[in-house]
Amino acid sequence: MQLDSLYQEVILDHYKRPEHKGLSEKSDVQVHHVNPNCGDEITLNLSLRDHLIDISWDGVGCSISMASASVMSSLLSGKTLEEAGPILDSFVSLMQSKGTQTGDEEVLEDALAFSGVSKYPARIKCALLGWMAFKDASVQIQGR
């Protein structure tokens, strides 16, 4: 079934058992992003501990948006902002590739499971929701 390329096992697993979900009590910055097309929402807390990323988040949304936020937070947590930048760029580029890129597994790890999403234009925003929240938060934290 063609749909299986979208709903890969990894995605459904993260949707059912999201990681880093539940907001930390304190954080250096907090951002709230919504997808005005569908109403999906995410709140993301970002802190740096000895320069290492600490993410927690909460949100409501479809499997793609929630799983993507979960994968993103587990992939980027514990890395530095310098390390996270290229991963973010790589994911965004994969999403915008209209199915022409396969993505670099070394860089994207579990996030590679979202490669099928790029063939469904209406779902790209879902996959990017958490990543864009992180990007926003990381810009804010660097501005401090």
Partner: peptide, 21 residues
């Protein structure tokens, strides 16, 4: 099942519905 996922699944069966607010 989130409406967006429902809409996507129905689409795979040729069924066009709207999802969202």
């Amino acid at each position: 099942i989130h409406p967006h996922d429902m809409g996507q699944f129905l689409d795979s069966q040729g069924i066009a519905v709207r999802t969202g607010h």
